[in-house]
Design a protein around this nucleic acid. Structure first.
Lengths: 245, 245
DNA sequence: AGTTGACTCTGACCTTGCGTCATAGTTTAC
DNA sequence: GTAAACTATGACGCAAGGTCAGAGTCAACT
């Protein structure tokens, strides 16, 4: 657990910015002390890394939040897009260097402004944003979450984590057992109710993230104890397999 | 002469931005029609190119104006700095690409935020800015121009140009002749009075810019007729040489 | 000559992403 | 137990425009 100061030192993000990111839900503090001090864990840092990559690409913070919180968010897809955009930006800068060198050597008489043109880059960024906000799942999520405050969202997250805490309590039992299967159904219903229709396919995808070693995994293990994410993954697989027949 | 629309199309700068740049003196319209429409000539475009290079490097517009209008402004020095900064920016982006690739391949467990660090870049940019604002000439200029409005500045520019118009009228005569030499002295005094103490050395440097084929040259030729810049250059050289003895 | 459509002007207000106090409570270290 | 260092909230300020609104201008077609 790190304080704002420590996070700020480590990442170069100002304390003021952390306040803002917290309040707008872009990077909520993982926890708060009784006196209201913000504390951040590794999952938060991981999220911050994502945020900073998007920020570097001049995405509006609201959009970043939307993208990262999108029900269909996929880190790898995001990284690919980010790399692509970074490459375009690099190219853009190379063009500017060439332009500046050209002026140095041959004077300014060319009047070439193409190097400043960011249309391609902007267009790609627009597409990238759209790719997160135009799926049916997202539309549904938008509707259901309209008018929700950051408070509400934290509340929902807490209720979701409560389910994983329950799972954690039986993680030494059979993932295909009745209690575990009931909890999986409870989870699926909860997601459907509060975010978007959670098909078995989507549930299965989520399950992979729960055990994938990412921030999801960490969060879940924190709620239910070491190995809960892995357990949830197996329980979900059993659930989905059974329903296939 | 181009309209705002045309300039906007050519350069990608919005019309609104052009309005703002005009009002703040960063990029004054070269001329206005009776009805108040802004018109831009090639010298303005040249200046805009400089502005955009600095803007790309996230220099505040006010600083850009200061730098470009600095009595000691030197296009080549500026270009060198810009290239250096662009190279650093490029490197920064390359680091980010590496970071993103690393996360893709090996997961996020490294928690490396160094790639986001812009301290080196910021520091260099700070130095670059300072290098324009810390010469004695600049300090003097700051004092003399304190409280001057954009209107005042245009006025001064017009009075300066009037001197070149006078020069233009005698540009078929001897640059070392009495009339020409009087005008050079008038110019030197005008600069000393309104900007900073214009030593013979500085005057000589300025003279080179007047004939160098840049925007200065263009502006002067526009005020006094083709060849006036060249004439001014020679007149100044004669003036300075004579005073050396 | 009149009208239409595309431009342009100014001015006022809105927005983003913070920086900068001010004020007040909290924790840590000696 | 007190100083020094942190932290929180809130209010305000700022840059660099975007976005109308209201009004004038210009070119072109009819």
């Amino acid at each position: 657990m790190m304080t704002v100061h420590e996070v700020s030192e480590l990442t170069g993000v100002s304390i003021r910015a952390l306040h803002i990111y917290d309040r707008m839900g872009l990077l909520p503090a993982s926890q708060k002390t009784e006196s209201g001090y913000r504390l951040y864990d590794d999952a938060a840092l991981e999220r911050l890394q994502q945020v900073l990559l998007f920020r570097e690409l001049d995405f509006p913070l609201k959009d970043i939040r939307k993208i990262i919180d999108s029900p269909v968010f996929d880190r790898n897809k995001a990284l690919e897009q980010q790399i692509e955009l970074l490459k375009m930006k690099k190219e853009h800068i190379e063009n500017l260097i060439d332009l500046a060198r050209g002026i140095q050597l041959r004077g300014v008489k060319h009047m070439n402004f193409e190097a400043f043109d960011t249309k391609k880059l902007d267009e790609y960024a627009r597409q990238a944003k759209e790719s997160w906000g135009s799926t049916p799942e997202w539309k549904e999520y938008e509707q259901k979450s309209a008018g929700r405050t950051a408070e509400d969202n934290r509340n929902l997250a807490a209720r979701m984590m409560a389910i994983f805490t329950e799972m954690g309590q039986i993680r030494d039992q059979d993932p295909a057992g009745e209690k575990a299967q009931q909890l999986v159904k409870k989870l699926q219903d909860f997601i459907t109710e509060n975010t978007y229709t959670c098909s078995d396919q989507i549930l299965s995808d989520l399950g992979k993230a729960y055990a994938g070693g990412g921030s999801m995994n960490d969060n879940i293990d924190k709620a239910g104890g070491e190995g809960t994410g892995e357990f949830a993954h197996r329980a979900i697989e059993a659930y989905v397999q059974r329903r296939k027949q």
